[in-house]
């Protein structure tokens, strides 16, 4: 077995070159909260670990084209301290802040949470609901990929060898917009989501829903963008009937498994419950909004 090497390049080009040279043996280290557990458990044996945290682009939050661009290796704690993101995307921020404990928040990143490929990753349904787009870099250059297209199966992503996520672009927020994320866990903290639901809506001046996106986590092999659930809201004032349709659509979209964290029945039912509850929070935020 090859000895593991550690590198911490300070530019995107250098990181791409290293990962490209390493091929299959290369792994990206962002917050490390998944990778180090896998290393210790002997689940992975990388020959090269490329720590991307010294690269300025992956660590920055900036305003861009009316929206925000957030570096893939910005930690949850840092995101939660960014007033602009908290105001524009409270659902994304709260989802990211739900990843693990305070200690995990000091390290864990949205980029890592996404690229670990878990269907239960907390930030991902909120990112999907937000319509966030990942900026991916690799040997063949830069490309933009909608977040919902990154995870293609448990632990699997659509990233090519040597590619990694540099940042996420969040679109501009129209007036009367709000997002929210809720997850179900057995305890109050420290668990992996059994179900996660992110809802993002925009209302018109009369309070009628003009646009909506709904993301679900831990209910299928990948996090889901559920168009039927969004359609249930669009054109409504998020009245009880619309919320019931939303819950039914969310439950209908689930293709979960029975495992140590929950049953098929439980996940299916609770996905609807959480989608409805998250929609109501998003509604309050949209009404309070700009």
């Amino acid at each position: 077995m090859e000895e593991m090497r550690y590198e911490a390049p300070d530019s995107l080009d250098a990181a791409v070159a290293m990962l490209s040279d390493a091929g299959e043996a290369g792994r990206v280290l962002a917050g490390g909260t998944d990778l180090l557990v896998q290393l210790r458990a002997g689940m992975v044996h990388p020959g090269l670990v490329v720590d991307i945290k010294n690269i300025p682009e992956v660590r920055a939050i900036s305003e861009e084209g009316g929206g925000f661009r957030v570096g893939a290796a910005v930690t949850g704690a840092e995101l939660g301290e960014h007033a602009g993101m908290c105001k524009a995307w409270p659902g994304v921020v709260e989802a990211t802040e739900l990843i693990g404990s305070t200690q995990i928040q000091g390290r864990a990143t949205m980029g890592g949470n996404l690229c670990n490929g878990s269907p239960a990753a907390d930030s991902v349904p909120a990112l999907i609901a937000a319509g966030a787009v990942a900026s991916v870099i690799g040997p063949s250059g830069q490309r933009d990929v909608p977040v919902e297209d990154i995870i293609i199966g448990p632990g699997k992503t659509s990233l090519e060898k040597g590619e990694f996520v540099v940042s996420f672009k969040f679109p501009d927020r129209p007036a009367h917009s709000g997002d929210a994320y809720l997850r179900f866990i057995p305890r109050t903290e420290m668990d992996i989501a059994v179900v996660g639901a992110g809802v993002n809506i925009t209302l018109d001046d009369d309070g009628v829903c003009q646009a909506a996106r709904v993301g679900l986590g831990a209910v299928a092999a990948t996090p889901l963008l559920v168009a039927d659930a969004a359609d249930a809201l669009i054109g409504s004032t998020l009245d009880d009937a619309a919320l019931e349709k939303l819950a039914a659509a969310a439950s209908a979209a689930c293709k979960p498994i029975d495992d140590k964290r929950g049953t098929i029945e439980f996940r299916t039912k609770v996905a609807g419950v959480l989608a409805r509850r998250a929609a109501l929070i998003a509604l309050d935020r949209a009404k309070e909004g700009r």
Binding site: Y6, A8, L29, D51, Q103, I104, G106, R107
Partner: peptide, 10 residues
């Protein structure tokens, strides 16, 4: 942070 989730090399 948890010291078990950071590398010494970092």
């Amino acid at each position: 942070v948890c010291a078990c989730l950071a590398l010494g090399a970092e």
